[in-house]
Write a protein that binds this DNA or RNA. Structure first.
Length: 452
DNA sequence: CGGATTTGACCTGCGC
DNA sequence: GCGCAGGTCAAATCCG
């Protein structure tokens, strides 16, 4: 996620999943049913008491009409009231149980949060050590597999799923819990003043509103894509990973077929959709590697990770619903508009990195800071980013040339660039500069980029 | 012969 | 509810 290599695992406070612009996102503060939550909000806000009255009254009316028989109206009403109360009591006891389970699940979520943070800190330490080693220029080091996520957007979906379920259940129970309170209030004949209830409802709605935003955030995190445009004779970008083609489709509106690849470096790596073209290969990265990446794959991984990270942080609304002003300030940079575009109409937010322009122009488009960063690193990485026509050949030669010096230089280049916070900042500026123009630049089909 | 690729069938989500 | 398009699966085929 961070534009960093193995030595710059994001700090917990800056991790998109765990925090957003310094504001921690607690797992138990996520709403996976925004629609439902909204309904509940509205319900709580305006119609709650009326609705409850309505149900009770209707029920009584209907039952009264249907139970004429030998009993008088008063007897029927009394009996039905008793029934109604016993029903409420049963519901209340059930809701109490749910609340208890809710509490238990909340504790589980807290525990998971703590574990996650601890693990992240360990990762930071480890990667920091590796970074230091890389800076010391260790020679003769063998090309080793370095564990790092490809698109590090938080925990993998597999890991995340149980938490989602827990949070979902938690929220459901929270909502039920609030209903339970209201029912109890009803049964107690309004011991609590309506004003206090209004305040409680307001607090609840505020909380739920935040949960809505967080759920959207999480959804974005999971769905964001990074699309890389590059000129290449090959059918796909040789980015250092080992891809296996598993399908091909004729995409509508594009004479060129769209190919689907999976990473074969791990049996269950959820990875990529790749669209190909005659002269320009569009590679759309989605998901994250769940295995170690070779250094040859780290450059692209870092680039796409950074792009995804910045896309998410720049496109996600802050807690008050506003785009972070610092991001907008950085958007004033006149660079990168020809280099990165945001597809707003895509099903998921997609940042497109256009590497099809010549290196000189690209560096000219970049901010001076970013250009310096690119210039100051070994050419090998500059090529991989700026001269994509050589990328395929570059990686092929890497495959043949397994000399340690090559691997080291590549490692060092990747490490130097991706670990540098200035690079991150520059990339933030470059990518977020298009956020304000997303509508102008959106193509509607991020895969369809036939330049032939 | 084993792994990679091809390709038609199937599944799923979304819009009308 | 239906049709369409995108995405995935899996058997057949290819190739080293």
């Amino acid at each position: 996620m961070e534009p960093s290599s193995n030595h710059a695992i994001p700090h917990p406070s800056s991790h998109p999943l765990l925090s957003f612009r310094g504001t921690p996102l607690h797992m138990d503060a996520l709403d996976f049913f925004p629609q439902k939550t909204k309904e509940i909000q509205d319900h709580d806000h305006t119609h709650h008491h009326q609705t409850l009255h309505y149900h009770v009254d209707t029920s009584l009316d209907l039952l009264t009409k249907n139970t004429g028989g030998n009993r008088s109206m008063e007897e029927n009403e009394a009996l039905e009231t008793v029934d109604e109360k016993s029903r409420f009591v049963a519901m209340v006891s059930e809701l109490h149980q749910m609340n208890a389970e809710n509490q238990r699940l909340r504790e589980l979520v807290d525990e998971m949060n703590n574990n996650c943070n601890a693990l992240r800190m360990q990762l930071i330490n480890i990667t920091q050590k590796q970074h230091n080693q890389g800076n010391n220029g260790v020679s003769g080091e063998k090309e080793e597999m370095v564990p790092r996520p490809f698109l590090e957007m938080g925990v993998s979906e597999k890991e995340e799923q149980p938490s989602e379920e827990k949070v979902k259940v938690d929220l459901m129970h929270q909502c039920k819990g609030s209903d339970q309170k209201e029912i109890e209030d009803k049964l107690d004949c309004g011991r609590e003043s309506s004003k206090a209830r209004m305040e409680a409802d307001q607090q609840l709605s505020t909380k739920l509103s935040k949960l809505d935003q967080n759920s959207e955030t999480l959804s974005m995190i999971k769905k964001a894509r990074v699309s890389v445009r590059a000129r290449s004779d090959s059918t796909m970008i040789a980015d250092g990973c080992q891809w296996r083609k598993y399908g091909q489709k004729m995409a509508k509106g594009n004479p060129c077929p769209r190919a689907y690849y999976r990473c074969t470096m791990s049996s269950a790596c959820p990875v990529q959709r790749c669209a190909e073209d005659r002269s320009v290969v569009i590679t759309t990265y989605e998901g994250q590697h769940n295995h170690a990446l070779p250094p040859t794959a780290q450059a692209m991984a870092a680039t796409t990770s950074a792009a995804a990270s910045m896309l998410l942080s720049g496109s996600m609304p802050s807690s008050d619903g506003q785009i972070n002003p610092t991001m907008l300030q950085s958007a004033s940079l006149p660079c990168s508009q020809n280099m990165a575009t945001l597809s707003a109409s895509a099903p998921f937010p997609t940042i497109t990195l256009d590497l099809t322009q010549n290196p000189t122009n690209q560096l000219g488009l970049l901010s001076p800071l970013l250009a310096r960063k690119f210039m100051s690193v070994p050419k090998i990485f500059g090529h991989s980013l700026c001269d994509q026509t050589k990328l395929a050949g570059l990686h092929e030669s890497q495959g043949r040339d397994s000399s340690p010096s090559f691997a080291n230089s590549f490692n060092a280049a990747t490490a130097a660039i991706t670990a540098d916070p200035n690079f991150t900042a520059a990339l933030v500026a470059a990518i977020t500069s298009v956020m304000g123009n997303s509508h102008n630049n959106s193509t509607g089909e991020e895969h369809c980029n036939n330049n032939a």
